[in-house]
Design a protein around this nucleic acid. Sequence first.
DNA 1: CTGTAAGCGAGACGGTACGTCCCGTCTTGAG
DNA 2: CTCAAGACGGGACGTACCGTCTCGCTTACAG
Lengths: 205, 205, 205, 205
Amino acid sequence: MALVFSSGSATSGPRSASKILNAARDVLSAQGYPALTIEAVAAAAGVGKTTIYRWWPSKEALVADALAEIFRADEIPDLGDTHAELRQAVDMTIDNYTNEDMATALPALAASLLPHPELMTRFRETFLHRKRENIAAALHRGIQRGDLPDDLDTDLVQDIWAGTILYRRLMTGSPLDTDLAEHLVQLTTKAPPLLPRRESPRTSR
Amino acid sequence: MALVFSSGSATSGPRSASKILNAARDVLSAQGYPALTIEAVAAAAGVGKTTIYRWWPSKEALVADALAEIFRADEIPDLGDTHAELRQAVDMTIDNYTNEDMATALPALAASLLPHPELMTRFRETFLHRKRENIAAALHRGIQRGDLPDDLDTDLVQDIWAGTILYRRLMTGSPLDTDLAEHLVQLTTKAPPLLPRRESPRTSR
Amino acid sequence: MALVFSSGSATSGPRSASKILNAARDVLSAQGYPALTIEAVAAAAGVGKTTIYRWWPSKEALVADALAEIFRADEIPDLGDTHAELRQAVDMTIDNYTNEDMATALPALAASLLPHPELMTRFRETFLHRKRENIAAALHRGIQRGDLPDDLDTDLVQDIWAGTILYRRLMTGSPLDTDLAEHLVQLTTKAPPLLPRRESPRTSR
Amino acid sequence: MALVFSSGSATSGPRSASKILNAARDVLSAQGYPALTIEAVAAAAGVGKTTIYRWWPSKEALVADALAEIFRADEIPDLGDTHAELRQAVDMTIDNYTNEDMATALPALAASLLPHPELMTRFRETFLHRKRENIAAALHRGIQRGDLPDDLDTDLVQDIWAGTILYRRLMTGSPLDTDLAEHLVQLTTKAPPLLPRRESPRTSR
DNA sequence: CTGTAAGCGAGACGGTACGTCCCGTCTTGAG
DNA sequence: CTCAAGACGGGACGTACCGTCTCGCTTACAG
């Protein structure tokens, strides 16, 4: 993922981009988000502040690029097993939020982008789009196999998955364990829970 | 809700507490979270900075108290209709995150409290505990009525509800409409998706 | 001379004014005018930059006040001896420009004020007015005694004295010794003025 | 005058020397000395910063060369009239300091060179030496004609002339008019010198 | 002709200082 | 005696230039 928040053209990227992004993550891990100042990153990277400001318009953009590099959005391989694939999808999301830096910084980042719709859009595309596409592909395979309902709302499924995980991380502090993962998967596969406008087809509790 | 983040004894509350908390919300609404500085609140409240620092140890504590006053955690009345009660619970959560100030400031607040477990605990108790108790009461009524499974994981239900709503507000920007509310309610009432620790009874994957 | 370039009211002057002005002169002496930065003065004074900027609008104003405190503008006592009084006047001027800090910083200061007529006016009044008044008083005593011509242009006399001294200090580097002082005095009192090393007071050319 | 402050050999001068020196004066006239930065000159000259640094070691050296090109140091022609020749000498000095750029930049330049004796020496030679030689020649003609005292201190005369003019320009802001010029000339030739607005009473040249 | 190296424009780079904003603490003066 | 007003030491902001450093691109001379 190539510096989508940097203002540099794709080709003439900053010479010290990786030095800077690594330093940003180092500072984040070592001292936490509040200590993640541009000056601290510049010092940690052995770089002038100017160089950072030359390529990233704000701390937010820098953090976004730094996190984007470690945000997992893997393709889900076709395992022939819908349940296994969905577990892999959920586990990937859990991984993303279990990562200390990500959990610390992502919500702060999202919160600080909220008032800037244009940046928010870039943020969504960078962080979420690819991941959601990949998971949607797995869900569609499940539908074609007949393991999932035809009219499954793949966006809602993903909102529930990621939302629940984020919420536990951010608000309740409940554990993100295999139990949770399994629950979230079964939420999709079992019964008719996520079918829009249906009269519970195969449901006979 | 009484100033749980303030360091003052419950009785000898600050004389200008409400002036200050109102000013905090005014600044938040008018100029956004980044502009919500102690100095700005003091100026808006016509109060010395000292007075604010006397009662709240940090900007976070002040914001927490300011938000706590407008965070809805109503008791769900016994309507005799499980579905209606659950909709009321979900709608209340949606209301909380639809409020502009809340949506702006709550995630930022939570993110900034993450590294301070002790404050985080206070935060959870203040904001979530009462609301969750009230919703749990409604869920238990549903269980007793036989409308919901005996072993429903009421915590997980609430994590899913609030998580999905927060996630859409914070990350995807998708609408929080009645469709979503209905989906979230049906997720709980229909089929067996949210039963904890089961060996997926009638499922042959 | 009380902080004429500071923006504080005369009464509520900065608490750390003298600490700051001393630090400014220390930095000037130790490291020279180019190193005389606001940050360096703040550090040397053990003071925040803010405190300096609160009271002085610019480095120039600060330097002006710092120099004003050591700029000599003494009253010339009535010695009954015109020649002695004028020597005292010239010596005072030489003293001012012999002082290393003054010689270094005054011309730089004046040069940097040139484009700001309003500041330049304040500068003139602060630095020159009192001194010139005092010297003019001595000159007028000389006129009344009949030692100096009735229509002596006291401004021009002073411009010549100070100008020659400044010019030597700034441009030619020639020494500012008693010879020069005597020449400058005799320029006013006697003719012909520009003969080197002579005793011959009223020597017919 | 050939780039005495440039570090290039006289022969292999910079191709764009005049472009750069003109640009320097343009910036000086248009935006003042504080805005006279290397980057601004480079931009105005359509030249890379490197090119400037290749030939001039510092901003001071560049400014010195730029000013040297417009600093008047003409030979005083033998007019057969001492008074007229001296007026020409004084007028030339006044011209030099009446020029807006010169008055702005020369004192700043001299002040900034003060702590660098080696550069200061080069500066004096470049700017002053030729001019002083030429004026000294005129003074010597006056001595030979018997219009000036045999033992006139030609250096002191020039220090007084230039010093008074510089001082008025830099410090008092008094006008540099023909009255002043005449006074300064008469200071050398006659006594008593410092009477204002006289019709040269005892003067029958 | 043509290669090749010096001179050049452009501007990235590590830095320093700027002047501002806000922090959290301390001091003062009016009611 | 309280408390608004705000001075204080400090840290980070985002900007402007500094002087150094690659980059390719002329361009002019040597082969």
